[in-house]
Design a binder for these strands. Structure first.
Ligand SMILES: NC(=O)c1ccc[n+]([C@@H]2O[C@H](COP(=O)([O-])OP(=O)(O)OC[C@H]3O[C@@H](n4cnc5c(N)ncnc54)[C@H](O)[C@@H]3O)[C@@H](O)[C@H]2O)c1
Ligand SMILES: NC(=O)c1ccc[n+]([C@@H]2O[C@H](COP(=O)([O-])OP(=O)(O)OC[C@H]3O[C@@H](n4cnc5c(N)ncnc54)[C@H](O)[C@@H]3O)[C@@H](O)[C@H]2O)c1
Lengths: 239, 239
DNA sequence: CAGCGCTTGTTCACAAGTTCACAAAGTCGC
DNA sequence: GCGACTTTGTGAACTTGTGAACAAGCGCTG
């Protein structure tokens, strides 16, 4: 049917594209015009074969024997990621985290702009946060419509997160970034990504714990070995 | 050697344990004393078989025909995750995000406490943030030693992140949570986890972009089908 | 105390993702 | 223009993770 049959792109590849994108941007700012899978891999902290395979899902953008053109590759990745146009985002919950995100300028470079922040607390409504004024949560659907919001960002307490998600979904938002530590229950056509800092800390803690356990085991083994040595040296104490 | 030979735990399982932990806490607060893999799976948003397999890596904590004891399972998971003792954390970079994290109370429930915040900006040093006072970045090693810091949290601008990471590593910190959009280069025994909000947004954008493309393709196909139908109805225009 | 129903723990087949290895395809020097 | 060299793009082996299926084990009931 379609002449350019696009293969299905592995989720893992998609997650790496933004990293490549960032690396290429840095190369560009350093004035490099060409690069290789090797260099890009080094910079992105992955395997060179993986870089090539990842890029090959989208087409042949490199030149054999030479490498990849930084500008060209950037354009292709930007197009794949949809960074050629702007993505209006709306933040639900103007607390600590919501405010920090709203004030943060670093997303606009990549085409993401926070167009509105809502909160349910009447005391906060009207407050200035960055360039925006906090709106009441009731106006959410209106604001989504008005600004053509595509991505909703949830930074409410966990107990309110499901409500926030439902409201967003009802307003037509089909991509949600959720910072609340809750599993959201939503229609299958709404895509949710969770960012849970506590989970990340717990993963680190798990590995630290294991490290400590392993160290203890080594110590115990050493102690056992020492005991064994003593036993061997003094057979009289053996059972 | 060791009587209870521990199998190697899949990384994917480790990442789910904190979610189970959270669900069990909620069950406990609701007064439930027993549960099943089915219920837990439902709550955690995963497959029941996966829950059972994940839990079985650590031992047989359930009772066949009955299910799992909420309290018992919680204790076991807490032990596995090392949540039985406190994890002192230090934040590097007291900006928007660093301050939000420092003020956030939600980690202490799970045994993580922010014991210090450092910044390189002399203007910020001495400022109060939550219960803490911002210290100068030069005191980092001292503070790590003093509080027995195990986990370092980097919330500096990307350009300063590698420096921050090096300083942490030199101070003996071997677990780092990095919020800066940079690939950190560190000794292999230092464990790094990256939290990159921009990457999450870009992944969402990718799928939205695909959705739009798919919709366009369907439309195009419909148009083509319509054209085909017209052609068939009026063979005179065929080549 | 034996049979029955329920839920775990485990096995197995398969799906997803990674890494290797190498042919294909280009450049560059001569 | 040709041959040596470089780097891509990809098929295939391999590793890791998932989901379905089921035997084993437990409690309840009659
Ligand atoms: N602050 C952090 O550093 C941090 C870190 C990790 C995770 N989180 C998570 O992010 C979320 C927010 O954290 P925070 O520290 O900003 O909390 P916060 O209490 O400072 O802010 C929450 C805000 O949400 C508002 N809100 C409550 N219900 C709402 C609703 N239904 N609709 C709209 N707004 C509503 C509240 O009025 C409040 O302003 C929490 O779920 C927390 O677990 C925060
Ligand atoms: N703010 C957000 O919502 C947000 C969201 C996603 C990612 N991030 C990332 O988190 C990081 C911090 O963001 P932010 O908005 O808090 O920035 P910010 O500019 O508000 O804060 C950065 C702080 O780091 C300090 N700093 C700089 N160099 C340092 C060093 N070598 N040692 C110690 N401190 C140093 C600065 O003085 C400043 O106070 C950035 O890398 C950003 O990309 C932020």
């Amino acid at each position: 049917m379609s002449p350019a049959r696009r293969r299905v792109i592995p989720e893992a590849t998609i997650a790496r594209l933004p990293v490549y994108h960032r690396c290429l941007l840095q190369m560009q700012s350093e004035g490099r015009s060409k690069t290789s899978s090797e260099q890009l891999a080094e910079m992105a902290g992955v395997n060179a074969a993986k870089v090539r395979k990842d890029l090959s899902y989208f087409g042949s953008y490199g030149t054999r024997g030479v490498g990849y053109g930084v500008d060209h590759l950037l354009v292709e990745i930007r197009r794949e990621l949809g960074l050629t146009h702007d993505w209006p985002c709306l933040i639900v919950g103007a607390g600590n985290l919501g405010s920090a995100l709203a004030k943060f300028a670093g997303f606009s470079d990549r085409g993401f702009s926070v167009v509105a922040v809502v909160d349910i607390d009447p005391g906060r409504v009207g407050e200035q946060v960055g360039d925006l004024v906090i709106e009441h949560e009731e106006r959410l659907a209106e604001l989504v419509e008005e600004h053509g919001v595509v991505i909703g960002i949830i930074t409410t307490p966990p107990a309110a997160a499901q409500d926030a998600a439902d409201t967003l979904a009802r307003a037509g938002v089909r991509s949600i970034l959720n910072f609340a530590p809750t599993v959201l229950d939503l229609p299958v056509d709404v895509l949710v990504r969770d960012v849970d800092v506590a989970v990340e800390l717990q993963i680190l803690a798990f590995h630290e714990e294991r490290r400590a356990a392993a160290a203890a085991a080594v110590e115990a083994a050493a102690a056992a070995a020492a005991a064994e040595q003593r036993r061997a040296a003094n057979p009289a104490t053996a059972s």
